[in-house]
Design a protein around this nucleic acid. Structure first.
Lengths: 336, 336
DNA sequence: CTGAAAGCGCTAACAT
DNA sequence: ATGTTAGCGCTTTCAG
């Protein structure tokens, strides 16, 4: 005796299969007598609807595909939380896929979502070319989180990276820093905007930008810090593309016998839990990641149920979180 | 013009639908001529098979459900990596679900997996009662990672938590510690075994156990450390249930003006990336999490393709990773 | 309010 | 090697 089907329930309840379908989904056009009979029968049989059959017949899955690139980056769980909560609240399931940082994998994950007939896709941390995402967006609503993409085929949800970077750099300048290095985030989501914010702010203040290319990982942050130190260029502060890179930089700086923040100030981005550890206490910028996740779901639902078809690009304001890795530069006294 | 179906491909290639099905799945009983014609037609049409239809018809999904409880714990991404890699290698897709730490959610996630008809389920970090999991295991192969469960309905994959704990405590004892506190992991996977290892080792060495109940999170670790400190009981070292708890404890210890490892030695469990940060340099125990993930997939495949039906419980050896949070106790000189 | 009938797009015998 | 014929389990018109 394998799993009971809807027919079994119908037979047991003494009604037709169609009615069972309606009753189980709480349709208003079912008498309460039948409704009860069906519920009882389903319960006794331990009936569970076969989702594949349902999805095939209804052509919708009440499921969102969520593609996360780097599960190792503690930034993402926060986004997932926001997405998950909003999805739950709206009766949507989540199909998660982490893609291991390679474009081929991301493309494949997108295709799989579409083949599965998800009702919408949320991408975060995806590196794949925008055109690939746009192509996919023709068959299903897509929203991209934490990566600004200028497209009218899909929605995006971001914090204002440029503003966040500006806030961080302005803060360092206020502290008295003149030589501020930026370890950038390479292809990472929002990295370009943060770099732009850094650059513009430096220029505005008549300071010379000093950018070391890197990525959103600890190891690349370490390498970049290494290079910055080896370059011989003077700097008293580093603004890193994200927290992870800052962590890597922190290690290298201390290995070189320099102290943070006494010799070098350090600022990250994302306000991940690691930044909050008392032992690290990294000054950083908070994106409001739960909020971003929730907005992503809302966007999708607007398209699905609200019939919206034009793209919306959400931008929320980031927040500077000052902790203990920032202080006036060592020679601040001379400058005042 | 909506998505092309298999019929469209068949028509275009001038063959029957069944043949398209076979050709597309690389069956050997298709002439290379047809194979080519089908491939060409599919390509021109941009055909993609509808997975829901396929799954419904074939009654299998080539998909594993992966349930992770706490996405915020950096331990899990490692397991996911192992799982993902092994799944890819064997042509299985992954359906991830993070469950937000509540039993109801976990139960729901399990059901959803089953309703989706996944071919197997991998659970990690799940707190839900074993009986719930066992019930689910009657309809689909299940393997539980990093939580020892004595059941012959499902497989488990674990590191030897008791051994790992023993190694950690033995190491502290060797360093000269006599008063070692254990901040335990409560309901967390493997927590009971680690506690047992701690307790047994202490007793073996004629030392008195000092256990503070806690959980696998940073905040609970902090609270527990607070309690340990407030208790007035003497201790020169703490063995924590996992890295996260150790991080929380570390903060509290330092807030109390004590230094690690000079005043208090600290050991974690899991060897997450945070432990490896130069700035933290936490002594900890490595479970070999990628390996655990890979073994989980292997177990599932043995049941699915190998026809295995009796339960297998894998236990792999953990490894002590000594870093900088451990040192002889402050008064070591007196003891020698 | 309820039932009958026709698919959803694919796979899987069974023939040929 | 290829085509025919049934379904998989559900939803959804359409009558009544």
């Amino acid at each position: 005796m394998s799993k009971p089907t809807m027919d079994d329930v119908a037979r047991r309840a003494g009604v037709s299969r169609a009615l069972v379908s309606l009753a189980l989904r709480g349709s208003p056009k079912v008498s309460s007598a039948s409704r009860l009979a069906v519920a009882a029968a389903a319960d006794e049989l331990g009936y569970r609807p076969n989702l594949n059959a349902r999805h095939l017949a209804s052509k919708q899955t009440r499921t969102f595909g969520l593609l996360i690139n780097d599960l190792h980056n503690p930034y993402f769980p926060g986004v997932v939380d926001g997405v998950k909560q909003a999805a739950d609240a709206n009766g949507y399931r989540l199909l998660l896929n982490s893609a291991f940082l390679d474009d081929e994998g991301e493309r494949g994950a997108l295709d799989t979502f579409i083949d599965f007939n998800v009702d919408g896709i949320i991408l975060t941390g995806a590196h794949v070319e925008a055109s690939v995402i746009e192509r996919a967006a023709r068959s299903v609503p897509i929203v991209v989180v934490s990566r600004p993409i200028d497209s009218d085929l899909l929605d995006t949800v971001n914090n204002d990276d440029e503003l966040g970077a500006t806030m961080a750099v302005e803060y360092l300048i206020e502290l008295g820093h003149r030589h501020i290095c930026h370890i950038d985030g390479g292809r990472g989501g929002g990295a370009r905007q943060r770099r732009a914010g850094y650059e513009a702010t430096m220029v505005t203040h008549g300071l010379e930008p000093f950018i070391v290319p890197s990525a959103f990982t600890e190891s690349s942050g370490a390498i970049a810090a290494q290079q910055a130190l080896a370059s011989g260029r003077e700097f008293t502060a580093i603004f890193c593309g994200n927290d992870l890179a800052a962590l890597g930089a922190l290690d290298v700086i201390e290995e070189h016998g320099l102290r943070v923040p006494d010799d070098v100030s350090l600022v990250g981005y994302d306000n991940t839990f690691v930044a909050a550890l008392g032992h690290i206490a990294l000054t950083t910028v908070d994106q409001g990641r739960e909020r971003l996740g929730a907005l992503a779901v809302e966007s999708l639902i607007e398209r699905i149920s609200g019939g919206r078809t034009d793209a919306v690009h959400h931008v929320i304001a980031p927040e500077l979180v000052v902790r203990s890795t920032t202080a006036p530069p060592p020679n601040a006294a001379h400058h005042t």
